[in-house]
Computed example of a mutant assay.
Amino acid sequence: MRRRSLLLAVPAGLLTLAGCGEESSDKDKVGASVSPEASPDASPKVVDGPLPAITGGTKFGEKPVVAKGSGKPSTDLAVKTVIAGSGATIAEGDWLRAHYLGQIWNTAEVFDNSYDRKKPLVIQLAQGKIIDGWRIGLAGKKVGSRVEMAVPPSLGYGEQGQGGIKGTDTMVFVIDVQETFNGKSSAKGKEVPQDDVALPKVGTNTDGKAPEITVPKAAAPKKLVSQYVLEGDGEVVQATDTLLLQYKGVLWDGGKEFDSSYSRGQLADFPLQQLIKGWQEGLAGKKVGSRVMLVVPPDKGYGDQASGEIPANSTLVFTLDILAKM
């Protein structure tokens, strides 16, 4: 899956000089190389079939076995909710975490599946990030649903195809939607006491609003501080991970906010290795689903260089909700 340069989405300052290129993931294909042209029809027709039968792995979360397509596929996008979930409704622009299997209509050749990797895909349902078939076909579905779709070339990779997928191939997908995230998402972990009066206090609200950060009137710590505010129960973050985050940053001196994903109403996805050392060291080892408070001294932040609204030699305080690993 090819990702566009993260410089396009990163607030001023948070990337180090290392973050100037593109990143490629291993095998994910649904967001790999979307058609260079937007769909000519702003509202493509969605039909309920035909779709091949799912003959095995019929439970949500199980790797499905899908029959070969019978006859000619529709030239429209065919979508069916196989298992109806009861979670949040997915909207275009949301991020989602999902397991999926993809195969070719007329051969039943599986070209990709996340079940064998044991790693669901986390991706945004936005034009240019994901093929149009997913972007259109999953909008309006609910978390916990299994969705089957047949995606014609015009809503997939177009006439040029992608990898072993020819420009004439209709792709069949089975998608198990596990979770969705948007600009109103929050961590939902267990509250952890904040007892040290010499450290900032961070709000524990989980309503998607920016938590308050109260900075004490005291000298800033000289070393990096990384503590749970809400402790989740997800995977442990590795130094090489890319994370989906909500965050806010304020200056220790005066408590002025200098950056926030909440104020933009958009989540941030960052490769941890491309961020300031305070984030790299402070988030590695923490669990997905957590809210973390970081106090970043200048030597782990921007040092003696000013950056945007951050003066030189500033100690920074962050609250970060780790929503997912990419």
Rank of each mutant, 00 (worst) to 15 (best):
S145R: 02
T58D: 14
K141N: 15
S33M: 05
I104T: 00
K142L: 02
P153R: 07
K29G: 08
A84I: 06
A42Q: 13
V143Y: 05
K129M: 10
S25N: 13
N113G: 07
A67M: 11
P64H: 00
R97C: 14
S145Y: 01
Q103P: 07
I83L: 11
K141Y: 05
A67N: 15
A98F: 10
D132V: 14
R117D: 11
P120I: 03
P153Y: 07
F111G: 05
K129E: 15
V122F: 03
A150I: 04
W105L: 13
K45H: 01
E62R: 08
S33K: 09
A139L: 05
L138S: 12
G69T: 06
K118F: 04
G21R: 14
E37W: 09
S145F: 04
L101V: 04
A91L: 06
G140P: 09
V66D: 07
V79Y: 09
I90D: 02
I131D: 02
A108P: 12
S114Y: 00
V47L: 01
K80E: 13
S154H: 03
S43Q: 11
V34E: 09
K118N: 11
S145A: 06
R135M: 04
T107G: 04
E23M: 10
P152D: 02
T58A: 14
P52T: 15
I131T: 05
G61R: 10
A38T: 12
S86L: 08
G93P: 01
P44A: 03
V82A: 00
A126F: 05
A38N: 13
K29Q: 10
V79L: 10
K29T: 14
P36W: 11
P64M: 05
E62L: 05
L155T: 09
M149V: 06
A139V: 05
A126S: 08
K72Y: 01
A38F: 11
D112P: 04
G87L: 01
A38Q: 12
G56R: 07
S24K: 12
P50G: 04
P40Y: 03
D26S: 15
P120W: 00
Y115W: 11
G21N: 14
A108H: 12
V47K: 04
D26R: 13
K119A: 11
Q127V: 13
V66H: 05
D26A: 14
E22S: 13
A32Q: 02
G56A: 15
I123M: 09
V147H: 01
P40G: 00
N113I: 07
V151S: 10
G102R: 07
R97A: 15
S35H: 08
D26Q: 12
A98G: 04
P64Y: 03
E22Q: 14
E148I: 14
G21S: 15
